[in-house]
Nucleic acid binder design. Structure first.
Length: 549
RNA sequence: GGCCCGUUGGUCAAGCGGCUAAGACGGCGCCCUCUCACGGCGCAAUCAUGGGUUCGAUUCCCGUACGGGUCACCA
């Protein structure tokens, strides 16, 4: 077979040589140990947790080592492409603090190793495809979809391994005349890799997450170029990651099974194999078994879900970081105020198996993240969320920011901050009652005396002053309690509640109910100050009016 | 079905031949306390299984079971 001739027939147009591409995309001038990595999603318009997991891992690997992170768009499958997807993708990742040094941007491309959209790199792939043909390492295949399907059926019947290999590879060693005849007819063709591998052999391989692996060689003649001349993922991966000088490839472990092929391909092209990090999938509980998070069934796989639910960006970010490197949690406890970027991220700490996604843990992380924010930050972010998801609440927040920030300041700061907000949607429940628009009375518990409640509210209204500090305020509550014959000795009350008509705690509850409509709240004295005397007194009166004499 | 990866409490997980097998989330209980939250203390709960190797296996090897992934002109 004259491979040179075959190559010229298949690729008649002039192409740059591999050497020329090497000059155009020279090795990067980076210090020893700098990691060059990339995120290479396909533009489906759907940004999911997996993108974040990979993005975060690559981003940390690159930037922690003084290297480069770039974004490449894997748009080789036109069928899956959604208009505007690239913009959605970039915005979502930027929102979650994944910043790229180069690659595809909303405006176009930025960087010296572009284009960063694979469909624009066709000529480059063809150079290397032609080279493989010249060397007898790739060949055209004219098998139709139907032929391949019936091959698959036969393989099933014979219990043979599936795929285009060995005797099934009908175009692997066809004479030139057959090829020319099909070409003459205009039959569409794909370019296949001529695999020299055998399933009798194993290759040894070291993955930075999974460790040492032993995998069976690939013997399948995979497709390199599809009939439209666009490469498959595999071929594009090899060519792009070589020319873009990627040192580390971070991807999901569903790629592990094609790894032997990639190893072969890099070898056949004379490229140095990058290092690989194969990440286990995020899973969730389904009944009593685990399964991979699914786009169709699980809304929480979409990044937009967390925005809608009102999770702060940093909560999701830190949660994922904790899933990837479980020692992050301990680090955070020891360094509550440090920037998460100063945490020493390590691929060695990553679980080779997949982790289970745990929203309870996310909530806990989020409470901690929010507890470290200032009241102003909480206010701003809550408002941002509410404008999208709760316009009525947003209007109130904007109309009176002082009330919101004061209320959010209660118990904030210091060594032991309150941790009772996990998502922005909870803020309304936390302090919404301060706004008349959102005030509602909870049901008043039956075991309290409504008559006493009324008396307490009216009595307290008579003696309340805004000038009271916390302890003076509580002294007045005690005074009211004593007036009702309630005890102020909580120890005695707790040891023998039945011997008293009630306690000062009950009186607090009455007042809290009048002021907030709820049975529990942050510090009531503070809340009354925030509302102001006039409003506090009117709320006491309003509640008292509901109860009988 | 072939191939590959994985398996420590309900969950996330330390561990890397010798430990009463860390810690966190969740649960429960107690303490603090005018409620809630915070905080403190404590409890229950784990090495999938059977064989080896070894003086000794959670740790190393093999089998089994279970879970996950993959076998496209999708990535």
């Amino acid at each position: 077979m004259d491979y040179q001739k075959l190559a010229n027939i298949l690729f008649p147009h002039p192409l740059k040589t591999p050497e020329e591409w090497e000059v155009i995309y020279p090795p990067r001038n980076l210090p020893e140990g700098a990691v060059v990595t990339r995120l290479a999603p396909s533009p489906t318009g759907f940004v999911h947790l997996g993108n974040l997991v990979q993005g975060l891992t690559s981003e940390r690997m690159a930037h922690q080592s003084g290297g480069v992170l770039f974004l490449r768009i894997e748009d080789t499958d036109a069928k899956r492409e959604v208009p505007g997807a690239v913009e959605v993708l970039i915005r979502a990742l930027a929102h979650y603090h994944i910043q790229f040094d180069e690659g595809a941007t909303i405006e176009g491309d930025s960087g010296l190793y572009g284009p960063y959209r694979q469909r624009q790199r066709k000529e480059i792939y063809h150079t290397y495809a032609k080279k493989l043909v010249e060397e007898g390492k790739a060949y055209p295949c004219f098998a139709t979809e139907d032929e391949l399907a019936s091959m698959h059926e036969q393989q099933e019947a014979e219990k043979a391994n599936y795929g285009y290999y060995g005797k099934w590879a009908t175009w692997r060693d066809r004479p030139m005349a057959d090829i020319e005849a099909e070409l003459e007819k205009g039959t569409p063709w794909v370019l296949r890799f001529r695999s020299e591998g055998s399933i009798e052999h194993k290759i040894k391989f070291t993955d930075l997450i999974k460790g040492n692996l032993e995998i069976t060689e690939n013997d399948i003649d995979h497709v390199l170029l599809k009939s439209d001349g666009i490469p498959t993922y595999h071929f594009a991966h090899a060519v792009d990651d070589h020319l873009m000088r990627t040192t580390h490839v971070v991807r999901g472990d569903e790629w592990l099974s094609t790894l032997p092929f990639h190893v072969q391909l890099f070898g056949a092209l004379g490229f140095k194999l990058p290092k690989y990090l194969h990440i286990g999938p995020l899973q969730k509980m389904d009944g009593d078994s685990k399964r991979k998070l699914s786009k169709r069934k699980d809304p929480e796989i979409a990044l937009t879900y967390y925005q809608q639910m009102g999770y702060p960006v940093m909560s999701v970010y830190e949660y994922i970081l904790g899933v990837l490197n479980s020692n992050f949690e301990d680090w955070r406890r020891a360094n509550p105020d440090a920037n998460a970027d100063t945490f020493a991220f390590s691929p060695k700490k990553m679980n080779p198996a997949g982790s289970l996604f745990d929203e309870a843990k996310l909530k806990d992380t989020s409470k901690n993240v929010i507890s470290r924010m200032t009241a102003e930050e909480v206010y701003t972010l809550t408002l941002e969320w509410a404008e999208e998801n709760d316009p009525a609440f947003a209007t109130c927040l904007k109309a009176n920011p002082e009330i919101a920030t004061s209320a959010l300041s209660i118990g904030r700061g210091g060594k032991k901050p309150r941790k009772d907000i996990a998502v922005w949607s909870e803020v309304k429940g936390y302090m919404g009652y301060l706004y008349d628009e959102f005030f509602v009375f909870e049901e008043f518990p039956l075991h309290y005396s409504k008559e006493d409640a009324k008396k307490a509210m009216l009595a307290f209204a008579d003696i309340y002053s805004e000038a009271y500090d916390n302890s003076a305020w509580f002294e007045k509550v005690k005074t009211v309690a004593e007036g009702l014959g309630y005890t102020t000795d909580m120890k005695a009350y707790k040891s023998n509640p039945d011997s008293f008509p009630g306690s000062v705690a009950d009186v607090s509850t009455f007042l809290r109910y009048a002021i907030t409509g709820k049975l529990n709240s942050p510090d009531l004295c503070e809340l009354m100050k925030i509302l102001g005397k006039e409003k506090s007194l009117s709320r006491l009166a309003r509640a008292a009016a509901q109860f009988p004499n």
